[in-house]
Amino acid sequence: MDDRTVETIVAEHHGSLGGMLSILTAIQSEYGYLPEDALRRMAAATGESLTDIYAVVTFYKAFSLKPRGKHLVSVCLGTACHVRGAPKIAEEFIGQLGIASGETTPDKEFTLETVNCLGACALGPIVVVDGRYYSNVRKNQVAEILKRTREGLDQPRENRRFPLSVRCPHCRQSLMDAAHPIDNVPSIRLTMSWDGDSQPLYLSSLHGSLRSVCERETPAHSITVLACPMCGQDLVGDSRCSECGADMARMTIDKGATLMVCTRRGCAGRRLNLETTPAEAD
């Protein structure tokens, strides 16, 4: 296991609300499940007791202590789905995948689980695959659902980590830096100034990742000035971070969509604004 990951995740979430749950969610999205070792590290890094962390992990069904497959199939067995024939659907999945509920196929492709009510009772039986809802599922659709998932025809909707490509809103030059990849994708290069000291700052361009790299770390929570390394203009926009209230730096994606990043070091505030404002569309 990559030694830094858990500690980095904990550091990224330092002081943010909902601490433990968001850290656990981040660890799980990193590994696909919650490895014992990661939880022990998390306990050491956060100072929380392992007993408390374990209590939270085992309380929520969303967390898994066992490795999960690439695709997660959740069959609803809630009351409404049950009377609409969900047990037959579950049986069909069990038969076709050859695993019991709660298990993962040997090729690590599918994990099957049954859940109690997904809140869409009127459309039951409900099956959720990788965050995609299938309603009124019939037995003969099961093979098709599995086939489509296997072929990747349905892109998982839950996966909120996708790379962005941004430009300076002033000089319109690309801010992407392929020479300094973070998360295996080109990073976003900015100039960060704090207390009279300017240096390059590389941000992960993966939306959902909060990694960043700079040479001389500024004190945690200091508010910095983020500027375009090309034209040197301050990127500060007119909105404030919803997490900490500091100013946010604004970058342009395509067609006027914007990415806002909090100027406070270590703050998780990031916002993707996909609405096209006519003034900015080009």
Binding site: L39, D52, A55, T58
Partner: peptide, 25 residues
């Protein structure tokens, strides 16, 4: 010590150490 705690919920709620292994604390 906080060596033991509640695990799981509902029917499966139980008392014990994390991961059911001897506790270090």
């Amino acid at each position: 010590a906080k060596a033991i705690g509640f695990r799981g919920r509902g029917e499966k709620r139980s008392i014990g150490t994390p991961f059911d292994v001897p506790s270090e604390v």
